[in-house]
Protein backbone atom coordinates (compact mmCIF):
# COMPACT_ATOMS: atom_id res chain seq x y z
CA UNK A 1 0.00 0.00 0.00
CA UNK A 2 2.85 2.36 0.87
CA UNK A 3 4.15 2.24 -2.67
CA UNK A 4 0.74 3.20 -4.06
CA UNK A 5 0.42 6.12 -1.64
CA UNK A 6 3.93 7.25 -2.54
CA UNK A 7 3.07 7.20 -6.25
CA UNK A 8 -0.14 9.11 -5.52
CA UNK A 9 1.87 11.72 -3.63
CA UNK A 10 4.23 11.99 -6.57
CA UNK A 11 1.40 12.46 -9.05
CA UNK A 12 -0.33 15.07 -6.89
CA UNK A 13 2.93 16.98 -6.45
CA UNK A 14 3.82 16.80 -10.13
CA UNK A 15 0.37 18.00 -11.20
CA UNK A 16 0.48 20.81 -8.65
CA UNK A 17 3.96 21.93 -9.67
CA UNK A 18 3.12 21.78 -13.34
CA UNK A 19 0.03 23.91 -12.79
CA UNK A 20 1.67 26.58 -10.68
CA UNK A 21 4.17 27.03 -13.48
CA UNK A 22 1.34 27.96 -15.88
CA UNK A 23 0.78 31.51 -16.95
CA UNK A 24 -2.86 32.02 -15.87
CA UNK A 25 -3.97 32.80 -12.38
CA UNK A 26 -6.74 30.24 -12.33
CA UNK A 27 -4.39 27.40 -13.25
CA UNK A 28 -2.08 28.53 -10.48
CA UNK A 29 -4.96 28.48 -7.98
CA UNK A 30 -5.82 24.92 -9.04
CA UNK A 31 -2.14 23.99 -8.82
CA UNK A 32 -1.89 25.39 -5.31
CA UNK A 33 -4.96 23.41 -4.28
CA UNK A 34 -3.47 20.18 -5.60
CA UNK A 35 -0.11 20.98 -4.08
CA UNK A 36 -1.63 21.64 -0.67
CA UNK A 37 -3.43 18.29 -0.93
CA UNK A 38 -0.06 16.74 -1.64
CA UNK A 39 1.59 18.53 1.26
CA UNK A 40 -1.19 17.58 3.69
CA UNK A 41 -1.06 13.98 2.59
CA UNK A 42 2.72 13.98 2.83
CA UNK A 43 2.64 15.32 6.38
CA UNK A 44 -0.04 12.81 7.23
CA UNK A 45 2.03 9.96 5.81
CA UNK A 46 4.90 10.91 8.14
CA UNK A 47 2.81 9.21 10.85
CA UNK A 48 2.87 6.03 8.70
CA UNK A 49 -0.22 4.31 7.39
CA UNK A 50 -2.58 2.59 9.81
CA UNK A 51 -5.91 0.92 9.30
CA UNK A 52 -8.66 0.79 11.88
CA UNK A 53 -6.55 2.60 14.41
CA UNK A 54 -8.06 6.04 15.07
CA UNK A 55 -6.24 8.05 17.69
CA UNK A 56 -9.13 7.81 20.11
CA UNK A 57 -8.33 6.13 23.41
CA UNK A 58 -10.52 3.13 24.00
CA UNK A 59 -11.81 2.86 20.45
CA UNK A 60 -9.12 0.62 19.09
CA UNK A 61 -6.24 -1.48 20.27
CA UNK A 62 -3.71 0.45 18.21
CA UNK A 63 -3.51 4.17 17.61
CA UNK A 64 -2.34 6.03 14.59
CA UNK A 65 0.08 8.87 15.25
CA UNK A 66 -2.15 11.77 16.36
CA UNK A 67 0.45 14.53 15.97
CA UNK A 68 0.59 14.71 12.15
CA UNK A 69 -3.18 14.55 12.16
CA UNK A 70 -3.42 17.56 14.44
CA UNK A 71 -0.92 19.43 12.27
CA UNK A 72 -2.74 18.57 9.06
CA UNK A 73 -6.12 19.50 10.52
CA UNK A 74 -5.10 23.08 11.10
CA UNK A 75 -3.20 23.08 7.81
CA UNK A 76 -6.40 22.20 5.95
CA UNK A 77 -8.31 25.08 7.52
CA UNK A 78 -5.53 27.57 6.93
CA UNK A 79 -5.12 26.22 3.40
CA UNK A 80 -8.76 27.05 2.80
CA UNK A 81 -8.29 30.59 4.04
CA UNK A 82 -5.24 31.00 1.83
CA UNK A 83 -7.07 29.64 -1.19
CA UNK A 84 -9.78 32.19 -0.62
CA UNK A 85 -7.15 34.89 -0.33
CA UNK A 86 -5.40 33.89 -3.54
CA UNK A 87 -8.72 33.71 -5.36
CA UNK A 88 -9.58 37.25 -4.33
CA UNK A 89 -6.13 38.38 -5.40
CA UNK A 90 -6.73 36.78 -8.78
CA UNK A 91 -10.07 38.58 -9.10
CA UNK A 92 -8.50 41.85 -8.11
CA UNK A 93 -5.69 41.51 -10.61
CA UNK A 94 -8.11 40.72 -13.41
CA UNK A 95 -10.03 43.83 -12.55
CA UNK A 96 -7.03 46.10 -12.37
CA UNK A 97 -4.80 44.67 -15.06
CA UNK A 98 -7.54 43.69 -17.50
CA UNK A 99 -6.07 40.25 -18.00
CA UNK A 100 -5.45 37.13 -15.95
CA UNK A 101 -1.80 36.52 -16.79
CA UNK A 102 0.31 36.00 -13.67
CA UNK A 103 2.83 38.58 -14.85
CA UNK A 104 0.08 41.13 -15.30
CA UNK A 105 1.01 41.56 -18.95
CA UNK A 106 -0.63 39.53 -21.63
CA UNK A 107 1.34 39.37 -24.83
CA UNK A 108 -1.01 37.13 -26.77
CA UNK A 109 -4.46 38.43 -26.15
CA UNK A 110 -6.71 41.40 -26.45
CA UNK A 111 -7.41 42.82 -23.00
CA UNK A 112 -10.59 41.38 -21.54
Amino acid sequence: MEILVAILLGVLTASGVFLILRARTFSVVLGLTLLSHAVNLFLFSMGRLHTNAPAVIGEAAQHADPLPQALVLTAIVIGFAMTAFVVVLALRSVLELKNDHVDGVDKNEEPI
Binding site: A6, I7, G10, L12, T13, A14, S15, V17
Partner: peptide
Amino acid sequence: IASIAGIGVAL
Protein backbone atom coordinates in the same frame (compact mmCIF):
# COMPACT_ATOMS: atom_id res chain seq x y z
CA ILE B 1 10.60 19.94 -13.40
CA ALA B 2 7.20 18.70 -12.26
CA SER B 3 8.25 15.10 -12.83
CA ILE B 4 11.43 15.55 -10.85
CA ALA B 5 9.49 17.13 -8.00
CA GLY B 6 6.91 14.35 -8.10
CA ILE B 7 9.45 11.55 -8.22
CA GLY B 8 11.42 13.18 -5.43
CA VAL B 9 8.39 13.48 -3.16
CA ALA B 10 7.29 9.95 -3.98
CA LEU B 11 10.72 8.49 -3.19
